[in-house]
């Protein structure tokens, strides 16, 4: 960890240069998330202002050190691409942390980027239950609608090259993954068939966040402070983001509030339309909610099989396979 501290201090000095003074120090380095292919670290940069006054600046490092393939996503965006998307979204008005710099080969720290550290709540159960957020919960669904409208309005010319993932490609991909496990989940076959039969052609192609849900939102009592985890960003049907936000798994027990466990669909749609996102097609949102529920179920299978294959042995990954049945019940409730 001392080595990482030193390398980070050198990277900060190279990229941020004069802004942080001549010899910026790195302190309070701590690992926030554990994962073989994705690491998130928090640290402070202490720099010297020209006045001789010290200033402390909170930072977050996200990187993939280049080991394991667990984090390989559909999008293969890479951490640099993720940072570029986050930057473009922030420039378009989406609440997101400021990207300070993207790591390069000379930093020798892997694929990653450093962003400003923001303060706020990210734990879904606190957002849904703490008294501090009672007022927030009355308008958070509408706020999500506004944020998604901004996110979907990002000019594609300002984005890195993104994979286009429509419904057809995603059904094909997740269907193949599921069938390759050789483990019969008849509800998944029923859902795959339903999704193929009811496919809705997108009205337009936009930037899609890909994981916009309760759990990836940092909030304060006043509203959304940052949309996090941009690694699944792609081009696709904007309704995908609205549907994923409504998947029952992301309601954390508050199932009568379809939007993230905190709000109603009408408020989400109204916020989206009022912010210039265009008319919401409720049928398409529902379609993507079905797809999202299936996708989460198959993701649970992927994680469990990563344990079973020996790729990443973990009691958590072993246990998550038993959450597949949750998505089966939710799918049966949705398929009519």
């Amino acid at each position: 960890m001392i080595a990482l501290t030193d390398s980070l201090a050198a990277a900060v000095a190279r990229h941020l240069g004069a802004a942080m003074g001549d010899h910026p120090r790195v302190e309070a380095l701590s690992r926030l998330t554990a994962g073989a292919a994705n690491e998130t670290w928090s640290f402070d940069v202490i720099g010297m202002l020209p006045s001789g006054e010290e200033q402390r600046f909170g930072c977050i490092l996200r990187r993939s050190p280049g080991i394991g393939d667990e984090g390989k996503s559909d999008t293969n965006l890479g951490k640099a691409g993720e940072a570029q998307v986050q930057r473009a979204a922030r420039d378009a008005g989406v609440a997101a942390a400021e990207v300070l710099f993207i790591l390069d080969a000379e930093d020798d720290l892997g694929d990653g980027y450093v962003m400003a550290r923001l303060e706020g709540e990210t734990l879904p159960r606190r957002i849904l239950r703490d008294a501090e957020y009672a007022e927030l919960r009355t308008h958070l669904a509408r706020d999500c609608g506004r944020t998604l409208a901004q996110l979907h309005s990002v000019d594609p010319a300002r984005l890195p090259t993104l994979t286009t993932l429509g419904a057809a490609e995603q059904i094909e991909r997740y269907g193949e993954i599921y069938r390759a496990f050789g483990q019969p989940v008849p509800v998944f076959d029923l859902a795959l068939r339903w999704l193929a039969d009811h496919r809705q052609d997108p009205r337009r192609l936009t930037l899609v966040h890909g994981d916009f849900r309760n759990g990836n939102l940092m909030v304060g009592p006043e509203g959304i402070r940052a949309v996090m985890d941009w690694e699944l960003a792609h081009l696709g049907d904007p309704m995908e983001d609205l549907g994923w936000l409504c998947v029952t798994s992301w309601r954390f027990g508050e199932i009568d509030h379809p939007v993230g466990g905190f709000g109603q669909r009408e408020d989400l749609f109204a916020g989206y339309e009022a912010a210039g996102g265009g008319n919401v097609n409720p049928e398409a949102v529902r379609y993507w909610e079905v797809f999202g529920t299936l996708k989460w179920g198959i993701m649970c299978m992927i994680m469990t099989h990563s344990h079973l294959s020996g790729a990443t042995r973990s009691v958590e990954k072993a246990a998550i396979g038993r959450r597949v049945s949750e998505t089966e019940l939710d799918l049966l409730n949705l398929l009519t």
Binding site: P186, V187, E254, S325, E326, E328, L329, D330
Partner: peptide, 16 residues
Amino acid sequence: TVMAKLAIDNPRYESY
């Protein structure tokens, strides 16, 4: 079948 699975996997799941 799914209700039987959830009785074992997670009887506290709200949809169940």
